[in-house]
Design a protein around this nucleic acid. Structure first.
Lengths: 344, 344
DNA sequence: CTGTTAGCGCATTCAG
DNA sequence: CTGAATGCGCTAACAG
């Protein structure tokens, strides 16, 4: 522990008062001569100002609390990259807490962060409850939610309903009438409800009637893989996974059963993970720019911190990625592009 | 900001001195009667102890600094999960800094963390320099390195050389004589040097002579995919990617060229990412338990913090995962398992 | 068991 | 421009 050097030691060595050193550290208001003496003294002693003492005075921690459902997922990784790109240059650091997909833990983590004296909080939630809202209110701290949306809270997320709808409409336009949506539980409002509902709305609209069945899976490859029999029992012409990973699990199973994709069955997903491009057939999907979400959320929080409460558009762009796993039933192949590219 | 309530307010309301409140918060040493009064007062005021004031006194931050090269990678995600599993129950929180694969930034981040008053640091480095060592020494703080190993520093990582060697020996035993190792630059000592060298040593040993050529790629699918022509020009019977992602990029390219895996060329990788199991053919690989690495590193740091300097075995288990992408040249198929399963 | 007394290291009035 | 004095909120001796 070399941090015995305090502002006092520096002051002594430089032959000035500690207030002068303090001023040197912060504003200016110091003669160029003493300025030099202090600089030298600091260099010599290797002085580092004590973080806690400083914060105790200034009431600003320059700390942002981040609460995450889990760490080992591509989307969370991207999100964090986005946060870092904004917070680091701004001189903020991130305090990270993981809730393990557990709502209770999520709340605990939020409280814990508040107590740590963070300046603001970002929660990548798996499901907002009234308690979340209460906490947000009572804390009085800027808080932004990511991954879910909830009234009364500031949320920044991709448009799950819109993405679902886009995919549904796309598939329908290609002549598909029987779809299975393989998705997660409804406690995940964003993915389990909004994305799915968007898909249904986009798919069943119009004549002739179309139908979508639902099969529940987890978020991982394996749980999707294991549900393949259920899924197939509905005799769909297209299977859409709520997530690229789900679709990948399905793809694997289809392959094992010798079912050709997209010739016999089409598959699509959501997320736009890189890996979807290297599997065979490459997965048609909708790309979500989680890194951008992270950046927007971080910037939004920073703006709140500095008073600017800009109420601008928080919709994230959606990018349709048409690849090889979906067949165009109206043409007989999947060759024809339909100008269904980058959309918002 | 409701944090106007201090320990003083609580004391007043409870009709005791603030030391009593402090004692209530920490040790015990308080009569059950006052204990109740304090409890009530705290509940009523919604008092939260001020983190910074507390730390200013105790000199303990209960904060662990984590510096990472990047966030958007599976292995880093696993690692972080591992950290969290140890630190959270122990009451430590994690301060996260991302260096963007930049060595300078990595150092800066380490310094920044030291200044924040963290109790210890974990660095998942991309390459240790003498400056890292100097910083570790001068700081006097417990520091553990992950991802790389370096003398004079406490490192916890998977055995890259061993993994490479295991893979090399395995492939060789299957009758392969011409391999291409597709890997990253040598500045990444662990992956670019150790893993590769292990492979070479394991592969070329014995008679008849075997040969391995080297092709440099990045860490991503695409950069590997783009190098496929180079790789193929060596006419290998097996291609091994330094990373599963590299192998996946190669697999994709092989598929596009109509080259059958493993019938015409075998492919293997390192990492054991889940996705390797769902692609076709499923990728033979060596599984690295990064989450375990994270847990070990975290526990090691905690032990140092509490004085226990256990010098035990820090080797991580390696799990050989034999799947579909490698052909046994001695049998003509890839069917025969060789008892080459879980090893350490 | 409990109240009183001191600071932790720093930023900030306030007079010079 | 600068030094002396005053807490920030809390914990840790210190005497009761």
């Amino acid at each position: 522990m070399e941090d015995k050097v305090t502002i006092n030691d520096v002051a002594k060595l430089a032959g000035v008062s500690k207030s002068t050193v303090s001023r040197y550290l912060n504003k200016g208001y110091i003669s160029t001569e003493k300025q030099e003496r202090v600089r030298a003294a600091i260099a010599e002693t290797g002085f580092k100002s004590n973080f806690f003492a400083k914060r105790l005075k200034t009431k600003e921690s320059k700390l942002i609390g981040i609460v995450l459902p889990r760490m080992d997922s591509v989307s969370v990784g991207k999100l964090l990259s986005g946060f870092a790109r904004i917070f680091e240059p701004a001189g903020y650091q991130q305090l990270l807490l993981v809730s393990g997909l557990d709502g209770k833990k999520e709340l605990q983590n939020m409280e814990s962060l508040l107590q740590q004296g963070v300046d603001g909080i970002i929660v990548d939630s798996v499901g907002i409850t009234k308690k979340h809202k209460a906490l947000a209110k009572s804390s009085g701290l800027p808080m932004v939610i990511t991954g879910q949306s909830a009234e009364g809270l500031e949320c920044i997320k991709i448009d799950d309903y819109g993405a679902g709808h886009m995919m549904g409409a796309y598939l329908r336009s290609l002549g598909h009438r029987r779809a299975v949506f393989a998705g997660v539980t409804e406690t995940d409002t964003a993915v389990g409800v909004e994305r799915r509902q968007g898909f249904v709305d986009g798919f069943v609209k119009g004549e002739p009637k179309a139908r979508v069945d639902f099969v529940q899976t987890g978020f991982d490859f394996l749980s999707a893989y294991n549900k393949a029999a259920d899924i197939l029992s509905y005799k769909p012409s297209v299977i859409v996974g709520a997530t690229d990973n789900i679709s990948l699990g399905i793809l694997r199973c289809l392959h094992e059963r010798g079912i050709k994709v997209p010739q016999e069955i089409s598959v699509a997903g959501f997320g736009g993970y890189d890996v979807g491009a290297v599997v065979y057939p490459a997965l048609t999907t909708i790309f979500f720019d989680y890194e951008l979400v992270g950046m927007k959320a971080a910037q939004f929080l920073l703006d709140k911190l500095s008073g600017k409460s800009r109420e601008e558009n928080l919709d994230m762009p959606l990018l349709f990625v048409e690849r090889e796993s979906v067949r165009n039933l109206t043409k007989g192949t999947n060759g024809e592009k339909m100008g269904f590219q980058s959309m918002v």
